[in-house]
């Protein structure tokens, strides 16, 4: 306590005498007031600073909850089946058809012809004689094989239309995924460059689409005839006979040999 520099003036006797007799102290009341104020100051600070458990943990809890929700949604999305339910598929097909309509006015017809050509190729050829019925059903009328005159008519159509037909299944035939979207421009490009080409045969028409895209889109492409008819029925029930009639005409164009139920016959 008493640090004095070496050259500092000193008088040990005076210092000792002073310390011995200077014994005054503050009163205990002052001591208590000061110590109480010191404790209160610290207590105030402590009570202000220490937060409750909720305040301490709310940020980690919020972050954890967000993480769990994000992971759950990601896992659910990943595990969702690729194939849509029939009504959902029909709706998405309609939407896709609607989107593609301005670009290709006769997309449905062309797509149907293209599918028909592919089916004919598959059916007439001996490559896949045991193709499942479920695959062929949407494309080929249940009556069985496509008449020979229809096969012959397909390549004899307008060259531009035919080349577009060959290309359009990827663009106009609705898909529920994005697989068809990249294929469409390429296929269209191929079609426009073939405007002056000779009439196409059915097989090359089907081959224009990339094999991978074709394979991928096969289970999803087109509506099944029965689904389509169900939609037409639904349109009638909803009081939309014009649209139902239009759809029926379309249906008959796509499936000319499909035996129409009684209610749809003229």
């Amino acid at each position: 306590m008493n640090e004095v520099h070496e050259d500092s003036p000193k008088d040990p006797q005076v210092s000792e005498f002073y310390r011995k007799h200077a014994t005054e102290q503050p009163s205990t009341a002052v001591d208590e007031r000061i110590l109480a104020a010191a404790r209160v100051a610290v207590a105030d600070r402590t009570s202000r600073k220490v937060p409750g458990w909720w305040q301490r943990w709310r940020t980690p809890l919020a972050l954890g909850t967000t993480l769990v929700l994000t992971l759950s949604l990601a896992l659910l999305h990943e595990r969702r089946p690729v194939v849509l339910a029939p009504e959902g598929r029909a709706a998405s097909q309609k939407a896709a058809v609607g989107r593609a309509a301005p670009a290709a006015a006769t997309s449905s017809e062309q797509a149907a012809d293209s599918r028909l050509a592919e089916a004919v190729k598959r059916d007439s050829g001996d490559a896949q004689p045991s193709l499942p019925v479920e695959v062929l059903r949407p494309m080929v009328p249940p009556s069985g094989r496509v008449p020979a005159e229809r096969i012959a008519r397909l390549p004899a159509s307008n060259a531009v239309g035919e080349s577009s037909e060959a290309a359009l299944p990827a663009a106009a035939v609705p898909h529920n995924g994005t697989a068809g979207a990249p294929a469409a421009p390429a296929a269209l490009g191929t079609a426009t460059t073939r405007q002056d080409a000779a009439p196409l045969k059915p097989a090359p028409a089907a081959a224009v689409a990339p094999p991978s895209a074709l394979t991928k889109s096969r289970p999803e492409e087109g509506r099944a005839a029965s689904d389509w008819l169900d939609e037409i029925r639904a349109l009638r029930r909803q009081g939309n006979p014009e649209e139902a009639e239009s759809q029926l005409r379309e249906f008959r164009r796509v499936y000319p040999d499909y035996p129409l139920p009684e209610e749809f016959r003229p």
Binding site: Q25, P26, D31, L35, A38, R39, T46
Partner: peptide, 21 residues
Amino acid sequence: YGAGDADAFAMLYDRYRGSLY
């Protein structure tokens, strides 16, 4: 004491209460 230890202040006060007074 600045960190919240009131006992530290009591110790400090005891050291200097007489001399300061």
